[in-house]
Design a protein around this nucleic acid. Sequence first.
DNA 1: CACTGCGGTCGACAATGTCGACCGCCTGTC
DNA 2: GACAGGCGGTCGACATTGTCGACCGCAGTG
Lengths: 254, 254
Amino acid sequence: MPGPIQSLSRAASILRLLAGGERRLGLSEVATSLDLAKGTAHGILRTLQQEGFVEQDPESGKYQLGAELLRLGQSYLDVHELRARALVWADDLARASGETVYLGVLHQRGVLIVHHVFRPDDTRQVLEVGSMQPLHSTALGKVLLAYDPVARGELGEEPLESYTSRTLTDLASVDEECGLTRERGWADAVEETWEGVASIGALIQDRRRNPVGAVCISGAVERVCEDGFVRPSLVASVRSAARAISRDLGAGRF
Amino acid sequence: MPGPIQSLSRAASILRLLAGGERRLGLSEVATSLDLAKGTAHGILRTLQQEGFVEQDPESGKYQLGAELLRLGQSYLDVHELRARALVWADDLARASGETVYLGVLHQRGVLIVHHVFRPDDTRQVLEVGSMQPLHSTALGKVLLAYDPVARGELGEEPLESYTSRTLTDLASVDEECGLTRERGWADAVEETWEGVASIGALIQDRRRNPVGAVCISGAVERVCEDGFVRPSLVASVRSAARAISRDLGAGRF
DNA sequence: CACTGCGGTCGACAATGTCGACCGCCTGTC
DNA sequence: GACAGGCGGTCGACATTGTCGACCGCAGTG
């Protein structure tokens, strides 16, 4: 039976639809959005609701995501080996660099943040674990593009979105950047996604040298850069952290 | 068709199974655990994998939860109205009390933490958003038991688990405690789940006075308590925060 | 080199999910 | 206040769809 289970795929689509729309959605909206009969959509929603993946506002009858997803998402983090091994190294990197640290893995057409260390002694920040970042305009993304063929494959269908005036929006430039990344072993992104923010990232690989994720620091361009280039000392810190995590992952095997 | 969709329920069971077990599980383990034919389990797992809800270790072939769950869990938080409105009040409460603040909602047989403010100026702490706490031995749980009939209904099947020597393990005592909670409008739990930790919680209700969650502070018993009782000033802070959040929720309507 | 376990596939079968018409309710409108 | 139009939800016939258990190839093991 090498084919996906129809009802499951549809349920997943419904969940993604609910996750995408900001507000709650009604049964009919869901059904028409996904070209389903109302009865079918209702059956799936009812089951998802019973299982806790979806909640229904008793007042309006509209649907939204359910609490069980949060619980399972947390469980995912608990099991995540890369994250577990990287926790302490990320902390060290944040302390050493004085900047925010992100740990990301490839997920669909972007980078999923699986760990986030706040910049030490900074103002209040929002935890970004679970959010996504673009591939072509962040240090994490460029690292994955450079080393993970799957990531590169995800690109090259739709045109690249532009976020600032410095975003690379054509594939050739991005590929060139990836070549540079492979040559020197690290990637940067200076104001390519957010104005005023620069980041430096390096690859994490497992025991068999497969790319499994990336680590980066991210901070105000005034602090991270100097004379228009990222500070070499920060690059060294990031690369050393990435090597440490990779070694840690390998160590689990022997 | 008032019946759950079989394949979906089974998929949910598989996800829960994977979330429960610490380690990755093989296809056969999954199939036998849930009394499914191997082919059936495989079909569901394959679909879940395609959708990103499950990942397969390419080396061992074993399955674990997938990244999409983390993303969806994050989306759940984004949409969560109670959480959005409570953010700023929780911050204030943490600052005023100097203790850790939790925001929880009823989920299944426990309290799901949907927001967590670290204790100001404390050592490194672990974010507990997405984790569960017991109903009968925490301030959050007691509040929900006292005011939410559904929560009370979740109890009273299996015997209550004991965590410390001060955990209330018989239903009568818990009910008595709930009565007290309703009388005075707040609940406490002193070393009933974790040694050395005391917490104080109060109810959050929506515009129609329905219980929707609870807020609490939690900290070392030496700081939270005085002469064997929780400090009245902290109780006042918690109740005032709960009222503020409730008012905020109501304000959305008018 | 059989043996045993694994993950994965296959095809027949009927249980299962799907579909579109239908229901009752609420809301807004004229 | 009758009506229309939308909502969420239900129903039952139909055939698509997921299910089952036997089977396959492989890897580790004695």
